[in-house]
């Protein structure tokens, strides 16, 4: 029949495509790895831009667990980034004269952010998607307002500065290149972990919740637990990203954590392809690095994001690089009679 007739030809092309793809990925990785070592005029600039995009990939991977896997639209993700950053700033700076090691603070910041995620999650997770979006948006703003107004703790809009630089085997990490590699390493770890989560019983439970929460629960998925888990893991990754950001910048201000951080991260996930890990990476380069590189373009960045979001939802809601499930569909032979006799899906 038609699907057994997937002759050797497409299979061959597919394998070639697969190899080509891996080759491209390998080349891109190598380029990213050696770039800071090459001496060229604008090296510092490129290290900063790519490093920044890498940081957004980390945030994107974290939020992707919440939005892409579990289908919970969180518009206040910046809150966890801020919590991670302030945790580092308070534990490695002169504000309270506490000077813990970066490597100790990193897990603490992750845990604090994760705890905040679970605490926020508990009351709001029963809400429908759009309410969740607004409440998380409000939460993100509350955290920023608190950072601005709790001057005794955060020094308000003056910000916290002269933060300690991390030490690695006695080497003080202070140049852009150091953070470039630190971000690259953290990115690989986060990518590896989210990849494993995706391809497991846990990832399947999340996708099931995203697809149909009631049915997922009927299949025995404890939806509250899995949603909290997604929130907690997403927040943890955001917290890690925030700490790295604070260490890299050496100073933080409440305005670093405005609504647009959340919007950027949500946009890069959706435009890259919801639930798709390569999508997050491509989305981050497209939305964070590209506008910076094409400078004239930078002013119009948000205008184009807005437009892109609308067009994307209408024309290509699955994003530029759809998740593997959608890819499977594109690759698989269509069934003989593709649901001609099926009733409309949303027949309530």
């Amino acid at each position: 029949m038609s699907d057994s007739a997937s002759s050797p030809r497409p299979a061959f092309r597919q394998r070639l495509g697969g190899n080509l793809r891996w080759a491209l990925i390998a080349v891109a990785c190598a380029a990213v790895l050696v770039m800071p070592a090459i001496d060229f005029a604008q090296r510092a600039y490129w290290v900063r831009v790519i490093g920044y995009a890498g940081l957004y990939i980390i945030l994107g991977l974290g939020l992707n667990v919440v939005v892409g896997f579990a289908g919970l639209l969180d518009l206040g993700y910046v809150a966890f980034y801020a919590i991670g950053a302030y945790t580092y700033a308070l534990l490695a700076g002169s504000q309270f004269n506490i000077h813990l090691s970066f490597w100790l603070i990193l897990p603490i910041a992750g845990l604090v952010a994760s705890l905040a995620g679970v605490l926020l999650g508990m009351p709001v997770l029963r809400m429908r998607g759009d309410y969740l979006a607004i409440v998380t948006l409000g939460f993100g703003e509350i955290i920023r307002l608190l950072a601005t107004n709790l001057t005794g703790l955060t020094n308000g809009s003056q910000g916290l500065y002269d933060l300690d630089k991390p030490l690695l085997f006695g080497l003080e990490l202070k140049t852009g290149t150091h953070y470039y590699y630190m971000i690259f390493g953290l990115l690989l770890i986060v990518l590896f972990l989210t990849y494993r989560l995706d391809r497991s019983r846990i990832g399947r439970a999340w996708i099931a919740i995203r697809e149909d929460e009631d049915v997922a629960q009927m299949m025995g998925v404890n939806t509250t637990f899995y949603k909290l888990l997604a929130f907690g893991i997403g927040a943890l990754i955001g917290g890690l990203g925030g700490s790295v950001f604070a260490a890299w910048q050496g100073s933080i201000f409440p305005d670093n954590f405005n609504l647009f951080v959340s919007i950027n991260v949500v946009c890069l996930i959706i435009i890259g392809g919801m639930g798709s890990l390569p999508g997050v990476i491509i989305g981050s380069f497209a939305l964070i690095a590209l506008p910076d590189i094409l400078r004239g373009f930078r002013d119009y960045r948000l205008l184009l994001y807005g437009l892109l979001l609308v067009i994307m939802m209408i024309v290509r809601p699955e994003g530029f690089i759809p998740s593997r499930r959608v890819q499977l569909e594109l690759r698989a032979q269509a069934p003989a009679e593709p649901q001609t006799d099926a009733p409309p899906a949303e027949q309530a």
Binding site: R204, A208, D214, A216, M219, G220, P343, A348
Partner: peptide
């Protein structure tokens, strides 16, 4: 009554979710 599969998961993944418990 009105089929409620996990539409964007593969057939086998649907069954794997069924095995969740």
């Amino acid at each position: 009554q009105n089929i409620r599969l996990f539409a964007n998961m593969t057939a086998i993944e649907n069954i794997l979710v069924g095995q969740h418990t």
